[in-house]
Design a protein around this nucleic acid. Sequence first.
DNA 1: AATATATACGACCGGTCGGTCTTATTGGTT
DNA 2: AACCAATAAGACCGACCGGTCGTATATATT
Lengths: 212, 212
Amino acid sequence: MNIDGRLARGQRTRTAVLDAAVSLASANGLDGLSLGHLAESLGVSKSGLFAHWRSKEELQLATIDRAVAQWREKIIGPALRAPRGVRRIHALHEARVDFYADRVLPGGCFFATTEFEFNARPGAVRDRLAEVFAAWTGFLERLVAEAVDLGELPADTDVAVLAYEIDAYGIAAAMRSRLLDPEATYRHARLGVLSRLRALCPDPALLPEGTS
Amino acid sequence: MNIDGRLARGQRTRTAVLDAAVSLASANGLDGLSLGHLAESLGVSKSGLFAHWRSKEELQLATIDRAVAQWREKIIGPALRAPRGVRRIHALHEARVDFYADRVLPGGCFFATTEFEFNARPGAVRDRLAEVFAAWTGFLERLVAEAVDLGELPADTDVAVLAYEIDAYGIAAAMRSRLLDPEATYRHARLGVLSRLRALCPDPALLPEGTS
DNA sequence: AATATATACGACCGGTCGGTCTTATTGGTT
DNA sequence: AACCAATAAGACCGACCGGTCGTATATATT
């Protein structure tokens, strides 16, 4: 919006709206997201939103894309700055748990919230989410395969199952940290993946010590 | 309801309504559950529901309790029929994956759906869900501790972390099976826990062979 | 300064929601 | 057969939803 609160054209405005949408949707769902509340939280009129997105569904799809961009920046970025192999896998998982622990989003995880909201509801939103999840699991599996190729994980590692396991630790963290003891949840999530990687890696010195 | 479609008093009627509510809510959420649609799916008037539950929230809480009863019957029951120790843990996990794989509920998992719907929304529903999740994780941890006591898992096992891991495999199964390849998801979920238990158990003969 | 253009606003629409209430019908009792 | 208590039905209410549209205002141009 402008200094006086008006919505203006341009990418920056759209991004600000979508950031607010990601935040609200992580708590109330992408369908539970009220355009009236969204506009109000930005000090903007509801009808102004329809100048940028033709329908709620279009804004929902754009919100998913924005959440992907946030995920890339906050979780995938730090991982890619770590050296390839088990250390990169560990960095990815740590960045993910950090993201949840920092309470960046009120709902904990935008993707978990929207997945369970739409997984039984056919439509464009569901299809887009399926694409995002497929890309994510593919990325994780590539990281694990890379570590195997580097000899930092046993050659007979079942790549898909190990990638599944690492992802599962993260999903469980998002789920439990909001209803049960958050600190214990993060500790279990971090310690579980770390000790698993250390146990599998022929050179445990690549990873920090695991202490409970 | 009666033969002619009327709602009648009695526990059986309530149970039938709540079963339908669990099914609908697993797909559309506990808040997304429309009382009009629920009544219509039962061939009953909406106002009739208010004779049994004073408000939607009351019906939501009763629906959670009904889902717990289903979970007890379908997942905890089979586990308790297996011998204590790692076999019981394995039976619990298998029953859980079976439950998802059998497509008992359209949404995959009632608790996952409602957890992510309410974890950022204070109120009676959220509090009730927190109780349920605490009881569930406590149960899982007791099963793991039991296996440790029986010598079927190493004495230095971190009970909380291993219980977390097993639960995580189940959560991930519920999440992925609806957007990604379901068969691969179930295979990973089953194989992951089985191979973990076999690797940890001093007597792997207690568990079936793990084949990918 | 006057005009033309773009755009943000707020009233408004139809539809659905949870919830209420009056009415009609049922089944049991004497 | 007549009455009574219980209860299901459906019309109805206010609130909120996504979405539309006419109008007032700010900006850019000449």
